[in-house]
Design a protein around this nucleic acid. Sequence first.
DNA 1: TAGATTGTTAATCGATTAACAATC
DNA 2: TAGATTGTTAATCGATTAACAATC
Lengths: 210, 210
Amino acid sequence: MKSPNSISAATLKRLPLYLSYLKTLPKDRTVNISATAISAALSLNAVQVRKDLAAVGKGGRPKIGYLTEELVFDIENCMGCKDLSYAALVGAGNLGKALLSCDDFGQYGLNISVAFDKSENNIGATVNNKHILSADKLEDMCKHMNIRIGIITVPSYEAQGVCDKLIRAGVVEIWNFTSVKLKVPQKVMVLDEHIGSSLPLLFNHKIENN
Amino acid sequence: MKSPNSISAATLKRLPLYLSYLKTLPKDRTVNISATAISAALSLNAVQVRKDLAAVGKGGRPKIGYLTEELVFDIENCMGCKDLSYAALVGAGNLGKALLSCDDFGQYGLNISVAFDKSENNIGATVNNKHILSADKLEDMCKHMNIRIGIITVPSYEAQGVCDKLIRAGVVEIWNFTSVKLKVPQKVMVLDEHIGSSLPLLFNHKIENN
DNA sequence: TAGATTGTTAATCGATTAACAATC
DNA sequence: TAGATTGTTAATCGATTAACAATC
C-alpha cells in the first residue's frame, strides 16, 4: 500500500477526476479499464495517466489494463477517502448551501457534519439533512464533535474571525472560500479555493479562425 | 501596453490575487507599493511577484516600488477587465445564486447579465439585480444579447445538453462547474472549475509535531 | 504470432528560485 | 553614502511528454 505522502500534488489533484470518471462506468461491463481509455475520456496524456495510476495502485496488465474495482479502491485509499474526514461549515449563504447540497464530496471522503450561521433565517434549518446551528455554538460543538476541518463561506470581512474561532475549537485544516489571506499557526493548513482565479484564462481566449 | 497572450498561465492566475490585494489598500496612504510588501502579504516569492508585475506593467522604481494606481490599471488591462465580458448563467440553484451574488467577478471584468432556470420557483425571480428567465428562452436571449460566455451550474446529467444549447446560441467560452467533461467544437474554450479537486491535499495534511 | 498495452528511462518543457548587478 | 528595491541571468526544480523495451 502506497504512502500518499510520496505522491505529487499534481497527481493528487487529478485523483478526483479519475475517481468520478471510473464511477460513471457501468460496473458489470467494465471489469477492466485501460489508461488509454481514461486518458481519451478526460483529454489527458496517456503516459501521465499511467504514471498517476502507478503512483497510487499496484499496476495493470499489458493488453488488458487495470481492474476497475481495484483502481477505485486504490484511488480512494490514496485520496484519504477511507477514513471519513468530518467538517464544519461556517456561513450558510448561497455558497454554503451549495456545498452542503453537494453529495460528491462524500465520495471524496469529506463529510460536512454541521453548519453554522449568524442569521435567524437560517438557524434551525436543515440543508441536505445537515443542521444549521447558531454561530454562538461553533466552538463548543466543534470541540464536542471532534471536527478537524473547517469550511469558511462567510463574507470576507468575517473570515479571519471565524478562522480564529475554528482553530480555537481544534480545527487543523481550513478550506477557505473567501479572498482573504488567512493568518494561521504553522500546524494549521489552509486550502484556498479562489473561485474565479482562472477567469483571466477565459478572457484571454481568442478564437482562431477555422 | 503588453499583449496578454504572451503572459504565462501561471502568472495570469495570480493576477486576480494581486488585484484584490491592491484594492484592499487605503488609496491615499499607499501611492507606492513594493513587490516585497505584496509578496509578504500573499505569502509568495518576491522574485516571482516582480516577474509577474514585469510581465503586465511598465515596471517599478528601485527603492520606491510601483505606482499602486498604475499597477491596478495594468493588471486589469492584462486580465481583460477593460472590456467587460457578458455572460449567461444556466442553473439558478444554490451555486448559481452564489455566483450571481458574487460582486467580485465584476471587478475581474465578468458581467453575468442574465440567468436561466427550468424551475417555476426560480423563473421570474431576481438575484442581485439579475433576472432569472425560463430556460426555453436561452437561445433567443443569448443571441439577442450577444453573450459570449456561458456559465454552467446545472446538475451533471444536464450539462452537455445545456452546453450544446449555449454553443448554438453563439457562446464561445464556457465556465463549467459540473464534473462532466464537455464535448465542444475546437473554437470553444471550456474552463473547468472542479471545486473539490484539491481536497486530497487537505486530507493528506499531517500535523508535524511542534 | 501480432498488436495493444503497461511501465520505465531519458528528454523536454515551464515555472520557481537563487544570485547579483543596476538604480535611486 | 548606504541600503532598499528593481530587474535580469543562471540554476534548480518539478511536471509533462517522448521513446522504447517488456508483457500478455
